[in-house]
Structures are given as C-alpha cells and as structure tokens.
C-alpha cells in the first residue's frame, strides 16, 4: 500500500472507487428486482402528457455567460487566495497590503461590471 503523498491519493481513489461500486451495485440489484414492461409511449420524452413538440435539444439562451466569465476571474482569484491565506501571518503586513491591492483591483472590475449593468438577469 502506498505511503505518504501518494498514500493520500490512494485513499481518495479507493473512496471514489467505492462510491462507484456502491452506486453500480445498487443499480444492478434494482435491475434484478424491478419489472420491465416495454411500451413505446413510455419511451417518449415527457412534456406534460402531450406529444413532444420539436426536439429536446432546442436552442435556449444561456443568460449568464457573462456571469460565467466573471466567475472564472473570481475563481482564479480564490485559487490565489488560498496559498496566501495559509502563510500571510508569517509574512505579516506586507502580504496583507499586497493582497488587498489585488482584491481591490478585482473589486474595481466587479464595480465596472455592475455599472455596465452586466449583473442584471435579463
């Protein structure tokens, strides 16, 4: 059994594997006990009881693609924040001010998006 650094990954992998086995096993069990009555209507797409109109893969507006862009920016910021947060006490006031400048710049970006009325769900 691997130890140390790879040991962590090993445990994690075993856990993930066990989740798959558990879900797969239960689904298999369900397959053995459940009935199966084939009927063509059952296999049609659900649309409140009437026959579906058009396909299910229709065009739809993804309203929040700008939110998604903002999210990527802030999520990267969060990734930077974590290593900083673990050590900032040792570095002290310098690290604090520097990170605050970084956050302020991103905050300005958020204010800009706000003023540009990007943060409206239309």
């Amino acid at each position: 059994m691997p130890e140390g650094y790879f040991g962590d990954y090993f445990t994690f992998g075993m856990f993930a594997g066990l989740v798959v086995v558990l879900v797969g096993g239960t689904l298999l069990l369900a397959r053995l006990v459940r009935p199966r009555v084939d009927k063509d209507e059952k296999l049609s797409t659900y649309e409140c009881g009437v026959d579906p109109i058009g396909g299910g893969w229709t065009q739809s507006t993804v309203r929040y693609y700008i939110f998604a862009l903002l999210f990527v920016i802030f999520d990267v910021e969060a990734v930077f924040l974590f290593p900083w947060a673990t050590v900032f006490e040792e570095i002290g006031i310098f690290a604090f001010i520097e990170m605050m400048i970084f956050i302020a710049i991103l905050g300005l970006g958020l204010v800009y998006a706000w003023r540009k009325k990007v943060l409206e769900w239309i």
Binding site: R34, P35, S44
Partner: peptide
C-alpha cells in the same frame, strides 16, 4: 429499487 427504470428514446 422496485420501480421500473426508463431511459427515453431520444
């Protein structure tokens, strides 16, 4: 567990 499992045709 006992319920039928349906995957739509589409």
């Amino acid at each position: 567990i006992q319920k039928e499992d349906i995957i739509p045709r589409a």
